[in-house]
Amino acid sequence: MSKFWERHPFWSLIIVLVIAVFIWAIFAPWPSGITDMFGRKKVFLNALFSGVTLGALYFLAASGFTLIFGLMQNVNLAHGSLYLLGGYVGYQISIATADASGNVVNYTFWWLLAFVGAFLACAIFGMFLQYAVFRRMEGDDLKQTLVTIGISIVAADLMLWYWGGDFYTIATPQWLAGPTQLPLATAVKSSGDVVFLKYPSVRLLILVAAIVIGVLMWLALNRTRVGMLVRAGVDDRDMLSASGVRIQRIFILVFAFGAGLAGIAGVVGGTFQSLAPGEDTSILLSSLVVVIVGGMGSIPGAALGALIIGLAEQFGSVYLPTYAPVLTFVIMAGVLAFRPQGLITSGR
């Protein structure tokens, strides 16, 4: 980080300033002039939290995508299908023991099991794809990408066939359903009481879980032997395989893990948004933009990109309603114009 400061003093200053403004806006009570310009602080804080939690969802989806891309140069355009499949599988598990009125005994257990089940289902599907399909066309990037498009068309139609066009939402366990009061003031009443921000607990939990997964992934990549092999594969897979590593196993492992993450993201998305045909493309596109902005093949890049895109979407929809999608696009275009390799580059 100190190197970045030395090389780009100007940009560092701007980043520090932006962060400082954000921190001030989060903690300080807003003077009336700013309230007039930007609306109430509660709206701002809500957009901020929604942006960060949306970023958590995007991170879960995009980190698998970027991992697969970084190692195998495979632009997996079926990633959205894996997300939707994970969501549907999670939904089925969560209602597996439901009685006629939809009540589930011990729901928290089944809800957590949904994550495990979605991870396993997508991981197995991913392993199958890598073993049966992509292994046969290694090195032919375009062909692999076209095949993933074909798979996503077929998978989308099969899922539509089985689950239909309805919206599904995975219910939140009782103890997470309510809001949590955060120690952040949104307003001060005339009586002098401070009003604190309330925010859905489940979203906060998922944010924490995404951060934990991100940190674990970073540790696994940087502190374990398998992680070392994966990083070596990202840098030069031919040399790695020439030095006696069974690279196909690593490919299958990474593909399974990336696909499993997409499945977990599907359950998360099903919990705080909803599942329906078409969600697969929309999450795929978000992952694409996140990965383009963050830097292709880099996990920290995916985290940064997800945070930026999540915040941009939420603030955009609050403050610039009709131009929100363009804001995301402008960010992407700006990054491409000035830093085509993405904000954080991986490996070499």
Binding site: L146, I149, G150, I151, I153, V154, A156, D157, L158, L160, W161
Partner: peptide, 8 residues
Amino acid sequence: QLLIGIGF
């Protein structure tokens, strides 16, 4: 779509 996807 299934037909198209498989054909593709």
